[in-house]
Design a protein around this nucleic acid. Structure first.
Length: 422
RNA sequence: GGAGAGAUGGCUGAGUGGCCGAAAGCACCACCUUGCUAAGGUGGCGAGUGGGUAACUGCUCCGAGGGUUCGAAUCCCUCUCUCUCCGCCA
């Protein structure tokens, strides 16, 4: 959520942001509501003042005067009542609308319609030139008997899968490797709920706009998270933190759930786009400082890059354009890992800066030592490692002519010393 | 699932109708002290949002939402959450 003051002062900028990010919000309507509320609020407050003053006098005056004052207060209350109804209605409308306003992208973010306009920044690693016909991960999974799509579908329908044997071990290995690496780099490991309430989904910006993407447990008014960013960011909601604890670096490995509504027919095969997956996520909660936020963005981005390097996977880094940014995101870098079967770099990591967008919704603040004021924190997050998607490049890039798959050095200690699958 | 207790400022915790946005302690900040020294003293210090250059000041907020009352942290109703005991159980 944005500061209404900022919107008042920059209506044009907001309109442009809505257009660039492709979010339809009626900013004029919002400002109209705001003006109405501000005006009526003041009227109401002056009536409240009058009421309070008269009420305070009552115990001090004579019984006759008391009755007069009571009548006066009753009259004031009637006037207040006339104001309160419409004011509340407009406020509700305003609050709801505010939840849909996107945060403008940083100035250097390329303007573009969708991910096809993302800008490549760099590539790392050499794309392998196979001297045999490489298999895709689906075939590899079947041949090595480590992925079972048929029975996955039997249990849970489309976009489901079962990992088995070394498939499971590889998944655990790569996730554990990511956690170990992050712990070494100062991230606090957390185990958090994956079933959360509405406030938490709203606070992190996934509701109301992303409601269609979430599995909701309506009976209990809860939702399954699509990423552990949700509980990690919300961990300190409604709190005023001590500045000295910032920046907080958190990580969690959780199951994640996405309905993938609106992606019918897209990436339907294999492990690329699935309803349930596991992810190690990094979340940083920082001071209200854009420069520091930028440094932290680079830091968590580098963590993910180092992970891909350790996994010996070629990747590229793209600067995500406005049209591919989320509602609250100011800027985002995706890491796309080379996937031979797709003959393309495809997204495996997503590193985002939010400034105070989430914190304002979450009411997450800290006391600034300099001026003693309470300020909203800044939040950032990045994927450390998401399975099974990362298994695609791992299996496909590291396959060998004899049908086996080489396990990268860094994962071997997590797989009982195995050097190969198969 | 059954029975009971509770929810107050960064924390602990008083407060059962106006003198309460709220005692006290802790923490924190400023200054003073510097041989009771991981101390002592004085003062400041809840959140949000308006008005004012400022001094200052209005309004709202004591889990959430309703109600009673001229007036509610305090009384009534509903909900949520927490704790204790019993039951069930990974």
């Amino acid at each position: 959520m944005l500061d209404i003051k900022f919107i008042r002062e920059n209506p044009k900028l907001l309109q442009k942001a809505c257009k660039d990010k492709n979010f339809l919000v009626d900013i004029d309507k919002l400002l109209e509501l705001d003006a109405f509320i501000t005006l009526k609020q003041r009227e109401l407050e002056s009536l409240q003042l009058e009421r309070n003053q008269k009420s305070k006098q009552i115990p001090q005056v004579s019984p006759q005067e008391r009755e007069v004052l009571k009548d006066e207060v009753t009259e004031i209350k009637k006037q207040m009542g006339d104001l309160e109804g419409p004011l509340r209605e407009k406020k509700e409308e305003f609050d709801e609308l505010m939840l849909y306003v996107p945060q403008p992208a940083r100035e250097d973010v390329p303007v573009g319609k969708d991910d096809s306009h993302n800008v490549e920044i760099m590539t790392y690693g050499k794309i392998r030139d196979f001297d045999f016909e490489p298999k895709d991960h689906i075939t590899l999974g079947k041949d090595l008997d480590i992925i079972d799509f048929e029975r996955g579908a039997k249990l849970s329908g489309s976009r489901s899968y079962v990992l088995k044997k070394e498939g499971t071990l590889l998944e655990h290995a790569v996730l554990q490797f990511a956690m170990d690496m992050l712990e070494e780099r100062g991230f606090t490991p957390m185990s958090v709920p994956i079933l959360v309430n509405e406030d938490v989904m709203k606070g992190t910006g996934y509701f109301p706009l992303g409601r269609e993407q979430a599995y909701c447990v309506e009976k209990d008014n809860m939702a399954l998270i699509g990423t552990s960013e949700v509980p990690l960011c919300s961990y300190h909601s409604d709190e005023i933190l001590d500045e000295s604890v910032l920046p907080l670096r958190y990580m969690a490995k959780t199951a994640c759930f996405r309905r993938e509504a609106g992606t019918y027919g897209k990436d339907t095969k294999g492990l690329y786009r699935v309803h349930q997956f596991n992810k190690v996520e990094m979340v940083v909660i920082a001071r209200h400082d854009k420069e520091e936020s930028e440094r932290l963005h680079e830091e968590i981005l580098k963590n993910a890059e180092d992970l891909l390097k350790a996994l010996e996977l070629p990747y590229r880094k793209v600067y995500v354009c406005t049209g591919d940014l989320g509602q609250g995101q100011v800027r985002k870098h995706d890491l796309e890992t080379w996937m031979p079967s797709r003959k393309a770099y495809s997204e495996t990591h997503s590193c985002s800066t939010f400034y105070d967008y989430q914190s304002r919704r979450l009411k997450m603040r800290y006391k600034d030592k300099e001026d003693g004021k309470n300020k909203l924190t800044y939040t950032l997050n990045n994927t450390a490692c998401a399975t099974p998607r990362i298994l695609i490049p791992l299996l496909e890039n590291h396959q060998e002519k004899d049908g086996r798959v080489r396990i990268p050095e860094c994962l071997r200690k997590y797989m009982g010393g195995r050097t190969h699958i198969g």
